[in-house]
Amino acid sequence: MKATFQVPSITCNHCVDKIEKFVGEIEGVSFIDVSVEKKSVVVEFDAPATQDLIKEALLDAGQEVV
């Protein structure tokens, strides 16, 4: 499964690193693409990962998800 999250609070590479760390810890996540320019995060994943778990990880990383 693939999901795109709009994350307007992404401003720098530190944000990218933190997002990759938090989302990458979720079992089932196979790909993460964070774009500072587009302020988006694209995640490819399989169970047990879910969109809700990914959104929670983004929030835990200090990001706003819309």
Rank of each mutant, 00 (worst) to 15 (best):
S40T: 15
A47D: 07
F31L: 09
V23C: 03
F45K: 00
D60K: 15
L58Q: 00
G28M: 00
T11W: 15
T50D: 04
H14A: 15
V36Q: 05
D33Y: 15
I54E: 00
L59I: 13
S40Y: 14
E20P: 01
F31D: 05
A47C: 09
T50I: 02
E37S: 12
A47H: 13
S40C: 13
K38Y: 13
T50M: 03
I19T: 01
I26L: 10
I32V: 11
D17V: 15
D33M: 12
I10N: 02
A61N: 04
S40G: 04
T50G: 01
K38C: 12
C15S: 11
K21F: 11
A61E: 02
E20Q: 14
F22V: 12
A47N: 06
Q51P: 12
D46I: 13
S30G: 07
V36G: 04
E56K: 15
Q6I: 14
F5P: 00
Q51R: 14
T50F: 03
L53P: 03
V7D: 00
F31I: 08
I26H: 01
C12W: 09
H14K: 15
K21T: 07
L53H: 07
E64T: 13
K55M: 14
G62P: 02
V65K: 04
L59T: 09
D33K: 13
E64S: 11
G62E: 06
Q6S: 11
S35C: 08
G24W: 12
K38F: 14
S30F: 12
V23L: 12
K2W: 12
E56T: 13
K55E: 10
K2E: 06
A47E: 11
V42A: 07
D33F: 14
I32H: 01
V36R: 03
E20C: 10
I32Q: 00
P8K: 09
M1R: 10
F31Q: 08
S40E: 13
L53G: 06
T11K: 12
Q51G: 07
K18H: 06
A57W: 04
P8Q: 07
P8E: 07
A49R: 00
F45Y: 14
P48T: 00
L58V: 03
A47F: 13
I32A: 02
V65A: 06
E25H: 09
A57Y: 02
T50Q: 02
N13P: 12
V34Y: 04
K2V: 12
S9F: 13
V7W: 06
E56D: 10
G24M: 11
A57D: 03
K18Q: 09
Q6F: 15
Q51C: 15
F22S: 08
V41F: 03
K39P: 04
K21H: 09
P8S: 09
H14M: 15
T4V: 14
D17Q: 13
S35D: 12
A3V: 15
V7F: 06
S40P: 03
F45H: 00
D17L: 13
V16S: 05
V42R: 08
E20T: 14
P8I: 09
T4E: 10
L53Y: 05
I19K: 01
K38M: 12
E37Y: 09
V7G: 03
V66F: 08
